[in-house]
């Protein structure tokens, strides 16, 4: 996957450049939710964003879709700076970018029927001419997410978590967006339902050539759906690489710590599992750090004097991989 990245330059759909998002700036209760992050999302890929609670993942998603106004930095969507979108072009931007929310119980208005929830975007953007067309489109969307047309006249509280999340997906798809931000869409669901929703998201992506920003804290699920993964901690990006690279060849100690916490359904392994603790004091040694490319396509948040260490680790991975007779990039 990462090989294709370097082979031919793909179109960058979303570019985040030095984004900072502070809440209550300049006050005693200032919160630096996002502190200078930059990354690009290519058209057609799934970009995974992982990190622990409070690391700024959701804030990043909400800044990109302009629910918040960034403190500084730029977000470009299709080459256009989203903070400079004029009022009359805003509606068009809203149509192209959509969001799937975390809590399926809070993301649907309890006083609206399912068909009105799904058709909200259709109404706002005048995508349908009359009621028949509206109903037909709603039925089509319900069908797409695996619900039946009988559900259109029901209220959200009558549905299970997974069904509700699928209604949320249908609502996002109604306006035919190009880019969808999935803000922990599966973390509130049962494990059995998680796969259902993730597979649905994948199918739809293939059918409609969508680009996803997939935010989650569950590394194994992110690895399953993402092409590239960014690891976030304390409002900064720690590591950014192809999904398999992050999963198999982590470089940053924080990523290693996160990976060591992923449970495996293997009692023998679990009994001897050793959790690596991450000591974030290494970030506060006053060395200026930026994202540095260690191996092509693999970035790590590092200071200049740490580069050699990271390169040595990457080298070691390469040797291990070649010893096993595999290319490290297609592990």
């Amino acid at each position: 996957m990462s090989a294709t990245n370097s082979d031919r330059p793909r179109k960058k759909l979303v570019q985040v450049q030095h984004l900072k998002q502070y809440f209550n700036p300049g006050k005693p209760n200032e919160v630096k939710a996002i502190d200078d992050i930059s990354f690009d999302i290519y058209e057609g890929e799934t970009f995974g964003l992982v990190g622990e609670s409070g690391s700024g993942k959701s804030t990043t998603g909400r800044s990109i879709i302009r629910l918040y106004n960034p403190t500084s930095g730029k977000i470009l969507f299709d080459g256009q700076d989203i903070s400079r979108i004029k009022h009359r072009d805003m509606l068009e931007f809203r149509r192209e970018m959509q969001m799937i929310f975390q809590d399926p119980y809070a993301s649907l208005n309890p006083r609206m029927k399912v068909k009105d929830i799904i058709a909200e975007g259709l109404d706002v953007h005048h995508l349908v001419k009359n009621d028949q067309e509206r109903d037909a489109r709603v039925n089509e969307l319900l069908n797409l997410v695996g619900l039946s047309r009988d559900h259109a006249t029901r209220y959200p509280h009558e549905f299970s978590g997974g069904q509700r999340q699928r209604i949320g997906i249908a609502r996002a798809l109604a306006v035919q967006p190009r880019f969808i931000i999935a803000d922990e869409p599966i973390s509130a669901l049962d494990v059995s339902i998680q796969a259902q929703v993730v597979n649905l998201l994948r199918e739809i992506q293939q059918e409609q050539n969508l680009t996803y920003l997939f935010i989650a804290h569950d590394l194994s699920m992110v690895k399953y759906i993402s092409d590239r993964i960014a690891v976030m901690h304390n409002g900064r990006l720690m590591e950014l690489a192809a999904a398999d690279e992050v999963y198999n060849h982590p470089l940053h100690p924080y990523t290693k710590s996160l990976l060591s916490a992923v449970p495996r359904p293997d009692p023998m392994y679990e009994r001897s599992r050793h959790r690596t603790d991450y000591d974030d004091s290494i970030e506060f040694d006053n060395h200026p750090r930026t994202l540095q490319e260690i191996v092509p396509g693999h970035f790590v948040f590092a200071a200049a004097d740490e580069l050699a260490d990271y390169q040595a680790t990457a080298e070691k991975y390469l040797h291990e991989a070649s010893a096993l007779g595999k290319s490290p990039l297609n592990a």
């Binding site: 809203r94 970018m97 969001m99 993301s107």
Partner: peptide, 11 residues
């Protein structure tokens, strides 16, 4: 979140 969703839809 449903109010946020309405905002992202452009209501």
């Amino acid at each position: 979140e449903y109010v946020l969703a309405a905002r992202t839809i452009g209501e």
